[in-house]
């Protein structure tokens, strides 16, 4: 049954540049496909041949451990040849422009380019210059679509649905691409999304995204089903955005006291890597009744496998 439904929906993109370009059926298609891969990844034999003969290049201009390894594993489990290019430490940084790098890689005939870059819009620019599929693995503070998809997948697995849930995204919204992609996606799927954080880390016009914003965490968490904590960069806690870590912890870290404002069965998510004792209480982060952070990582591989498969099918 499920297979028939999948066949019927057309995925209309060569690239995955952001959630904002996707339709609801396309999102559902990715989530449905991911489900099959969740099962597969739990099997002893995890290897498929769907992407045999395909070349996937992971082009990372920013340091990353989990996203990079997740994409690498996803590609390999589908049978693709995967190459990682960590440009953050390579010679490409020395004066070569993104477009030149793209042209060089394009000449090697890859089928998929996964890019992470510190500049917003980098994936869009790259996609205009290459013949292969481009997947945005994070561009500046703009989008991180696979993170949002894996978050949606995790919520769906744990809560059985997304529609009607109240979700609070908390912390440094200003610099967060994870927040933006999640807002687009959760709104699309019918959740009620709130953002919570100090006003210095809150984009002034964020409510234009169709969310409610709170600078008081207790109020923001009121009645929430899901609490998504964001990573807080410690270098922003020196007075430039927040006076100190301890002030941030007092008012914006998630602990057992503040979580009481949320629903009693509220679940905690975090895109990682976590700053224990800064944005989240360390015990709460490990609380198996509350925290679904480990599941997010698991869903990450499945969702990325689904994205790779769908993009390759869409290209044919």
């Amino acid at each position: 049954m499920a297979t028939n439904k999948i066949q019927a929906i057309k995925f209309n993109h060569t690239h995955l540049l952001g959630i904002q370009y996707l339709s609801i059926p396309e999102v559902n298609l990715i989530l449905d496909e991911s489900l099959a891969f969740v099962d597969l990844n739990r099997q002893e034999n995890k290897k498929l041949k769907i992407l045999n003969g395909k070349t996937q290049i992971n082009l990372f201009f920013e340091n990353s451990t989990r996203t990079l390894s997740s994409f690498e594993l996803a590609g390999k489990r589908l049978g693709a040849d995967v190459m990682n290019m960590n440009v953050a430490q390579s010679a490409i940084k020395k004066g070569e422009t993104l477009i030149d790098t793209a042209m060089t890689l394009n000449a090697m005939h890859p089928d998929i380019l996964v890019i992470r870059h510190q500049d917003s819009g980098a994936a869009n620019l790259l996609s205009q210059k290459v013949n292969c599929s481009v997947i945005n693995a994070g561009d500046g503070r703009r989008e991180h679509p696979t993170q949002a998809l894996l978050d949606a997948m995790t919520i769906k697995m744990k809560k059985g649905k997304i529609e009607g849930l109240r979700v609070a995204i908390c912390g440094d919204i200003l610099h967060s691409r994870v927040a933006r992609s999640n807002i687009y996606l959760l709104n699309m799927l019918g959740a009620e999304v709130r953002v919570v954080g100090p006003s210095t880390l809150m984009p002034k016009y964020i409510e234009g995204f169709g969310v409610k914003s709170f600078t008081n965490m207790e109020q923001g968490l009121e009645g929430c089903d899901i609490i998504m904590m964001l990573r807080m960069q410690t270098e922003r806690m020196d007075g430039s955005y927040m006076p100190s870590t301890r002030e941030y912890y007092e008012f914006f870290a998630l602990d057992y006291k503040k979580i009481k404002n949320a629903k009693s069965d509220a679940l905690i998510m975090h895109p990682g890597p976590m700053n224990r004792g800064i944005e989240i209480d360390t015990n709460l982060a490990d609380d198996i009744n509350r925290s679904i952070i480990v599941q997010q990582v698991e869903m990450g591989v499945a969702v990325r496998m689904a994205v790779l498969k769908i993009l390759m099918e869409a290209k044919q």
Binding site: G121, R142, R177, P203, K204, G208, F209
Partner: peptide, 10 residues
């Protein structure tokens, strides 16, 4: 400084 800046992440 507007909604567009937030959307484009600039």
């Amino acid at each position: 400084d507007s909604l567009q800046a937030t959307k484009l992440g600039l």
